[in-house]
Nucleic acid binder design. Structure first.
Length: 454
RNA sequence: GGCGCCUUGGCGGAGUGGCUACGCAGCGGCCUGCAAAGCCGUUUACACCAGUUCGAUUCUGGUAGGCGCCUCCA
């Protein structure tokens, strides 16, 4: 079991994860008002893979990624489409499960919905009101920011100049512009609402996460994650609510992923809207999307576009080619393989540095290509697949390809015969025919091999 | 305006006070009947200006540019 260290946003320092007890990870999932985009996929991938890595190191781990299915944006988007907000939320929640499911990384251990956590949400608000950290005003309930000393400790903002822009005219109901809504009274045109001690209404965004996190992981838990755009106000407010309500720390480590930067390629028409996750997967495949998302350190911004995606695919192809020649075979790994595997895992243990880890994978590939048969590199295929599985790319080893059919094999035999007779014209003609059938011929020392054309 | 982050070779992207990241693409070569795959090599890479230092891409200060948040946002 390696010591795993993660950069904590609050302190700015690397924090070692405690090995005793379960490691609870809560990551903020999407608000389901539309199909998710590639940016939403980053935390899903990062935290799914982090949980996978921690388990492989022997840590008991529970990953919860929520679905925010109550939100102003959902009401707005539903109205535009002329359907009910619950209908839209259900549709987009299903789409979210489909889209992320296609990534092939499995599901988080828990995926709570805000709409199914109303009880705990109301309970937490009631506790805050009771303790004087929140107050009812005109059917709304607001959190009293000045009642919580630690406000601003995550985002490092001075409270002096802050103001919660809760939109519309809610400000008039607040005692202090810093305060933010925990419960919003039902408004005309909103088609979902729940009973509460303060009348019918719905929860505010931040309290949903506080309640879902506690319901799934208790408090405190180990890692709270999400996109860096959520640091303020969302996570700052979660801390205020949860810590004020429970008197304990919310999470030990705050882990934030950087933004996907779309630049000018944002809505490329040539390949459709690849900005959307489902479209990116349609256009490039799940393996490419995953490889792309781990190509940069999770905390850094990552450039998005057809270029980076195509490059990720080309890198995957290199790995696939290697695994065709060196398929896993249950061989005991040689010394160099074991060392590479250790460095791969060390990189992940050091603030989940996936690009540095992938360097080890590629270095191993090159070493074997340079020195095939070297005993120190025995079992490279097995070791490489083990590495790739950790980062969600294990499927690169499965050809997933159907073997050549009889017709193709017949052509290959014919070409071999032509080559034996040094009839190069005939041999190349057959190669073209095979290409038309979707097969690329690669002549190697041990004969010709058919590989699906890219 | 406030808080914070970033600026690495054609592109993506790690990292380090002195030692080849890695991947993709290009070019040259090797291998091959040819090709593909693979291997080797490859064009002064670390925004700019000062400073600290024996030595800075890597530390400090400033300049320019970019980004995030400050309002819903992964």
């Amino acid at each position: 079991m390696r010591e795993v260290r993660i950069r904590d946003t609050m302190s700015g320092e690397l924090r070692s994860l405690e090995a005793d007890g379960e490691i609870g990870i809560y990551a903020c999932g999407p608000t389901v008002y539309s199909r998710i985009h590639i940016g939403n996929a980053r935390p899903f991938v990062v935290f799914s893979l982090l949980a996978r890595f921690l388990r492989s190191e022997g840590y008991a781990t529970k990953l919860a990624i929520n679905v925010t299915d109550i939100n102003d944006k959902i009401y707005t988007a539903a109205a535009e489409r002329g359907i009910s907000s619950s209908e839209l939320a259900a549709e987009m929640t299903a789409a979210y499960f489909d889209d992320t499911g296609r990534l092939g990384l499995g599901r988080p251990d828990a995926e709570p919905l805000a709409t199914e956590t109303i009880g705990p949400i109301v309970g937490m608000i009631a506790d805050l009101v009771e303790d004087g950290h929140a107050y009812e005003s005109g059917g709304d309930v607001y959190f009293s920011v000045r009642s919580f000393d630690g406000y601003g400790k995550l985002s490092h903002r001075p409270t002096g100049e802050m103001e919660q822009g809760e939109g519309d005219d809610a400000g008039s109901l607040k005692r202090d512009p810093l305060d933010f809504a925990l419960w919003k009274t039902h408004k005309e045109g909103e088609d979902t609402s729940w009973e509460s001690p303060w009348g019918r209404g719905r929860p505010g965004w931040h309290i949903e996460c506080s309640a879902m996190a506690e319901a799934e992981l208790g408090q405190p838990f180990t890692i709270h994650g999400g996109g860096s755009d959520l640091v303020f106000p969302h996570h700052e407010n979660e801390i205020a609510q949860s810590e004020a309500a429970r008197g304990t720390e919310l999470a030990k480590v705050w882990m934030h992923n950087g933004m996907i930067e779309t630049g000018s390629e944002k809505m490329s028409k040539s390949v459709g809207n690849i900005f959307q996750l489902s479209e990116a997967i349609d256009a490039f495949g799940a393996e490419t999307v995953v490889a792309y998302l781990i190509s940069g350190h999770y905390r850094q911004p990552l450039a998005f576009g057809e270029g980076p995606l195509a490059q990720a695919e080309a890198g995957n192809e290199r790995l696939r080619n290697f695994l065709r020649e060196n398929p896993p075979a249950g061989i005991e790994p040689g010394a160099e393989c074991s060392a590479a595997d250790a460095r791969f895992r060390d990189a992940l243990a050091d603030d989940f540095n996936t690009p540095r880890a992938m360097r080890e994978a590629f270095d191993l590939v090159r070493a074997v290509n340079q020195r095939p048969g070297d005993p120190a590199l025995a079992g490279a295929g097995d070791v490489l697949v083990g590495m790739l599985e950790l980062v969600g790319l294990g499927s690169l080893a499965e050809s997933g390809e159907e073997g050549p059919d009889a017709a193709a094999l017949e052509l290959l035999d014919a070409r071999n015969a032509a080559r034996a007779a040094k009839d190069w014209g005939r041999a190349d003609e057959i190669r073209d025919q095979l290409a038309d059938l979707g097969w690329e011929v690669r002549d190697g020392a041990e004969g010709a091999r058919l590989v699906p054309r890219a």
